[in-house]
Simulated scan of single mutants.
Amino acid sequence: MRINSKLLGALLALSFGHSSMAMAALNIFACEPEYGALAKELAPGAKIYTATTAMQDPHQVQARPSLIAKMRQADLVACAGADLEIGWLPMLQMKSANAAVREGSNGLFFGADQVEPLDKLANVDRSMGDVHAKGNPHLQFDPERMLKVARAFSDRLKQLDPEAAADYEAAHADFAARWQAATTRWQAQAGPLKGKKVIAYHTTFRYLFNWLRISQEADLEPKPGLPPTSGHLASLVERAKAGDILAIVVASYQDERGARWLSDKTGVPVLILPASVGANDQSQDLFGLYDNVLAQLLGGK
């Protein structure tokens, strides 16, 4: 039996098309766990690699060969931005030689570029410590800003993969509806925290405290980026003993020793909050991250 050549060609083209679509699943390189988690929400069919964990300081990452190899394969790199990754991302971009994710390309996405960050600085010098002139990059703890980032992230996915635009839009609509409902719930739960005061390590939770109207009265760091010193910790004792400090807050990747010393001297409890998704069993996605942070602050740990 002779096979119609046009029919055969059509079948081969259809087969090749399906194969190409299967291969078209985006490779997403997330610099931090919160952006890996957001990618899972908005692009569930993508191949997602997260370069760091919630137990690592995202300021301090080594440009390892394994990270270079992953970036070489990436269609999209999603990071916090505001120079949080300035010490390692440019090296990965250079060594991976991936034109799709270089500066100015659609394949490079910074969360901080999609919103107005807190604490922008017009002038920065070394005497100020490790500060970010472009603003605080730890915006994963602001639900309203994260919703705006999600919208921009979804739009970027559609630019890179227009054939799946309807799927990305549907995923975004689902995430946004669940996120807005959760935000309403979180705000109601967090009512008792308004006006509370804490001592914290760095400005990791700046957006969280701003959202919840919690005041960070002091920093365990003498200057941003410098570890606590004995002299600086001693200067915090009287403030911590004032009786109005809810907790001494440390992120999951930060050294607890200074906080524990201050707690022993003053009786103020230490809270080790997850810095991002995956820091503990309760914070395995963005929703769980917020649930767990609020539970700990409210005393439900």
Score class of each variant (00 low, 15 high):
A10M: 11
A13L: 15
A13N: 02
L14W: 13
M21R: 13
C31L: 07
A39D: 03
K40E: 12
K47T: 11
Y49F: 15
A54W: 02
A54Q: 06
D57C: 06
H59S: 05
Q60Y: 08
R64T: 07
E85S: 12
E85R: 15
W88K: 07
Q93T: 02
N98S: 10
N106F: 05
F110Q: 13
A112D: 01
A112N: 14
K120L: 11
L121F: 06
S127E: 11
L139K: 02
P143I: 01
V149S: 04
D155C: 00
D155M: 08
P162I: 04
Y168I: 05
A170K: 15
A170F: 05
F175P: 07
A176M: 00
A176L: 00
A182V: 08
A182G: 08
T183A: 11
R185F: 08
R185I: 11
R185T: 14
R185A: 14
A188V: 07
Q189I: 02
Y201V: 00
Y201Q: 10
T204D: 07
R206K: 14
Y207A: 09
Y207V: 09
L208D: 07
F209Y: 15
F209L: 13
W211G: 10
L212A: 14
A218I: 03
L220V: 07
L220M: 01
L226G: 01
T229L: 04
T229D: 03
L236H: 02
E238Y: 01
D244E: 11
V249I: 14
V250D: 00
Q254A: 13
S263A: 10
G267C: 07
V268Q: 14
P274T: 08
D281T: 05
D281V: 09
G288N: 05
Y290C: 11
A295K: 15
A295V: 04
L297P: 06
L298M: 13
